Amino acid sequence: MIDLLKNEKEFTVLFFGMLTIDILVKLYCPAYPYRYLTKPPIVLMLFFYYHFNNKEKNKKKHLWINLALLMFFIGDILIINHTNVVLLGASLLFFALGKLFLSFRFSHKFDFNISRLIPFSIIMFVYTVFIVSYLFNSLKNFFVPALISFFISLLLFQFAFLRKDAVNKISYMYVFFGVILYIICESMMAIKTFKTDLPLQDLLIMLLYGVSLYFITMGIVKERRRKIVLNPF
């Protein structure tokens, strides 16, 4: 089993096989008890893959990713019964914490060009304002939690983008692509929960969620820090 977790191709087949099973259960089976059996393994598999493959020497960064995956794991279980207001609110909290811990993990001390960040920040800010405005009348008591959650998503997006010159290209692309997919998934889930149904919503939300966490985790495992060359002048 450990050998399978250390083999990227075999793990990928296993992961997407499990994700497919969970999506089929979501579409065609009652949530209880089946989703409680098929949904938790999605994040657990990523947790163990990271554990057996990461080469992170910084213990604090190692802790951030473990905490992030733990928060997503708990959030996954709570949101299965998203019609329960208390469980829905708790799941939003844990997902927000997961994104916050990922933001901590992506932070670095490498210098960056602020002018490159501005266009992306403007785009994400406009996107966040649009989503919140669209859902405003439907959020009610969830307005503040939703606003905080989207703000943390903006923060996560920025930190993922700022990795560009600090890490190797494949790690940067994997993580950045995964974060974009997560934000799309999160927006679809918010619209579905608070506003209106969307075409193929259950299929797309679960697919985007699983794929996003896969790429983020893989990107972190593949991460290699670039050497910082100091200018003596």
Rank of each mutant, 00 (worst) to 15 (best):
R116W: 10
I170P: 12
F143W: 13
V129Q: 11
A31I: 14
K164N: 03
F104K: 09
V43S: 00
F177E: 06
G75Y: 04
M45E: 04
R224A: 03
L92V: 15
V179D: 02
N66Q: 08
H62G: 11
V13F: 14
L24W: 12
I123Y: 15
Q158N: 11
F143Y: 14
T193V: 09
F52N: 02
L5I: 09
L93A: 04
E223R: 14
L24G: 05
V229T: 13
T217P: 06
S103F: 08
L19E: 06
I220A: 01
F73R: 02
F161N: 06
P119I: 07
T20K: 07
V179A: 01
Y174N: 14
L88W: 12
I131M: 07
N113H: 13
L155W: 12
L198K: 06
V126N: 09
K99V: 02
K222C: 05
L97K: 11
M45A: 03
D202W: 15
T128Q: 08
N141R: 13
M124I: 10
V129H: 13
I170N: 15
H51W: 07
S107C: 01
L87S: 08
V85N: 10
K60L: 10
M188Y: 07
F233G: 00
V229A: 07
I80C: 03
F94L: 03
L14Y: 13
M188K: 09
L154E: 03
D165G: 11
V175A: 00
L203F: 14
H108S: 10
F120P: 05
D3S: 15
I80V: 12
